[in-house]
Amino acid sequence: MALLRRAIALSVCFTCPGCAGWQSALDPHGQQARGLEGLIWTFIWVAAAVWISVMAVLAIALSRKSGRGAGNERRMRVTVGGAVAGTAAIVLALTIISFLSTRLVSSEASHPLEIRVRGYQWWWEVTYLDARAERVFTTANEIHIPVNRPVRLQLSAADVIHSFWAPNLAGKQDLIPGRENTLTFSAQQPGTYRAQCAEFCGVQHAHMALLVVAETPDAFEHWRQSQLSPAASPTDPEQAEGRKVFTSKPCASCHTIQGTSASASIGPDLTHLASRSYIAAGLLQNTRGSLAAWIADPQTIKPGNNMPNVPLTANELRAVSAYLAALK
């Protein structure tokens, strides 16, 4: 008995952390996620009530003595008829509720913020679209959005099927090569939410995360302006050396740093790399140390990813990490 109690206490402890946090469908911070949360709780409570009442009827039936009377046949017909009618009513009600809330979730908004998200093995390319070409910019693995404004993601994939899932904000939507899906959502309060690829996409699928940072409209506009500017110039000789290393080594044949000669689009855009919280799609905190570790040996940190081990001397590595860590 004591063991059972301990097991129950333990399982409650383990399930509780799942109910809140920066990556949980049960802690909604957006209208769409709230709709889905309401739907799942409705289903859970209705199903629980049905299960408990069926069990109660079963218990009563087992505990009673069987009686054979003249009225039994009629009573049985009424009971079975009632149960069938009740089941049909519940199924119909849940279907209607489900239809109404999914329609709410997938409704299109007027004048949304348009963002193109493209899935690669194993990172996310994020392009902020605008009618004016000079206001379009590209970043990676981090989406900033203003609160209380609908955001429309145009989702596509470069290689295999991925799936965008920010559980606190919206449901899942697949990224499929050769076609474009959309997902519209909005955040109701500022905060940082974690999104994750939700469709197995290869050996590093688990390390394909993305941050959604919801900010006040002012903070978002400030961020947007800073992202639109070209990369910060080196402020000391070490950083200048780092830029030289970056543009002369294979780094520049895959990455872009706006304002330098590096302008390739095979890997993530690094123009404002230091403004992001994580590198390697949510794998490492963005510090100069982890940047250097990543550049020195990406295949040990994230085996199978498409960044090669580029041979650099210790001084080159120090310089290039100093330069990248200063790209605010």
């Binding site: 002369s248 080594k249 294979p250 044949s253 090669p308 081990n309 580029v310 041979p311």
Partner: peptide, 8 residues
């Protein structure tokens, strides 16, 4: 030479 690593 300066665009790809030897392995690549």
């Amino acid at each position: 030479r300066s665009r790809l690593t030897t392995e690549q």
